[in-house]
């Protein structure tokens, strides 16, 4: 047998790619992940969001195995720095990182130490000096992860900052919707985010992710908790419009997805709401209200829930609820993002 040397032109690819250190079959190169950090969803294109979703699919396969652990991030160090209380986000990052065989360091900084003691910049520099490759940060002040990213040599993942952004939550919400909606797409679907929009980083990041994916996004809540959003809706998120209303009926009618947001007691002292009871009466997601939505509508909640306030217990655990899926998908999405960031070339 002879081995003819091909006449075909070899593709113009960098040298690095032509010498794979594994027996890589050529021709199957995907697009590189171009972001060093994940700070907000608004920085992602719809194609990049798609890459995250497909990578999360693979992670769900891993999670379904008897041993849900792969060595992809072996030798990498992930530091989880949370300045705010959190259970599901912190744990899902930790589980996700461990499933990828990363070394995980968990730092729970007391909220009270934010304004005093070691500055965030010094803390981040210390974490870097200790060898962290990826820093997952949650912080009560909007924009804090950007400050961390400005001094950290590795990748920063925003685990939620103030009222500003919660990109991994928005991506897992989108993933969950695609999983449960017919034809696996949110395009043209009416997605209602109901509750305390003003203080919600989940709502803001979901506006970016869902409008990018082509959903018909509605924000609904008491007028005091929507302040400023009408102007944003008119200006559009990246030019894509959405709808803001205080009318629960208008919002829920024929909705495909209803996401209730947590309402916090502090909102009453701030003079924004008369009482939780009144909120539950006027804006709580009850069975009756849910019946306005399409019969196959799904119900979501980013957690933690105040059952009986923003969502009735029967709705939270009802057949339409995908809240448990959100939690499970949270691990897959976070694994996908850690994996993509670990190999990012920017």
């Amino acid at each position: 047998m002879t081995t003819p040397v091909s006449e075909r032109q070899s593709p113009e690819t960098p040298v690095d790619e032509l010498i794979p250190s594994v027996d890589e079959a050529p021709g199957s190169r995907p697009v590189a992940w171009p972001h060093r950090h994940l700070l907000d969803v608004d920085a992602l294109t719809i194609d990049e969001i798609e890459t995250v979703m497909r990578t999360a699919d693979a992670m769900r396969q891993v999670l379904a195995r008897p041993i849900p652990k792969v060595p992809a991030l072996r030798g990498r160090s992930v530091t989880i720095l949370f300045y705010e209380a959190s259970t599901r986000t912190r744990v899902s990052f930790e589980v996700g990182a461990k499933n990828l065989s990363a070394d995980v360091v968990n730092i729970a900084a007391a909220t009270s130490s934010v304004a005093k003691g070691e500055s965030l910049v010094d803390t981040v520099r210390t974490i870097e000096a200790l060898g962290a490759d990826i820093l997952v940060i949650r912080h009560p002040v909007s924009g804090a992860p950007y400050l961390a990213a400005s001094v950290f040599g590795g990748s920063v993942v925003n685990g939620g900052d103030g009222w500003h952004a919660h990109p991994t939550q928005a991506l897992l919400d989108l993933y969950t919707m695609r999983q449960r909606l017919p034809r696996g797409s949110v395009a043209g679907r009416k997605v209602v985010i109901l509750g305390d929009v003003l203080h919600s980083r989940v709502a803001r990041s979901n506006v970016w992710a869902l409008t990018a994916a082509g959903a018909d996004v509605w924000l609904c809540g008491p007028p005091t908790l929507l302040r400023g959003f009408d102007a944003w809706a008119r200006a559009g998120a990246g030019g894509r419009r959405f709808t803001v209303t205080s009318s629960v009926v208008d919002a829920l009618r024929d909705a495909d997805v209803v996401m209730a947001l947590r309402i916090q007691k502090e909102r009453m002292t701030g003079g924004l709401l008369p009482s939780l009871r009144e909120y539950a009466t006027r804006y709580g997601l009850t069975r009756e209200r849910l019946s306005l939505a399409r019969p196959d509508a799904i119900v979501m909640h980013p957690g933690p829930m105040n059952e009986g306030v923003e969502i009735a217990p029967a709705v939270a655990t009802g057949a339409q609820s995908v809240i448990a899926d959100q939690v499970a998908n949270g691990v897959a999405i976070r694994m996908a993002l850690l994996y993509l960031l670990a190999g990012a070339r920017t």
Binding site: P30, A58, A72
Partner: peptide
């Protein structure tokens, strides 16, 4: 069998391989 997550060269290749599934 997809061996993407088992490669020892995540930092060496220019791009992550597309995950194709197991």
């Amino acid at each position: 069998l997809d061996i993407t997550f088992y490669r020892d060269d995540l930092s060496l290749v220019a791009q992550q391989p597309l995950v194709k599934g197991t």
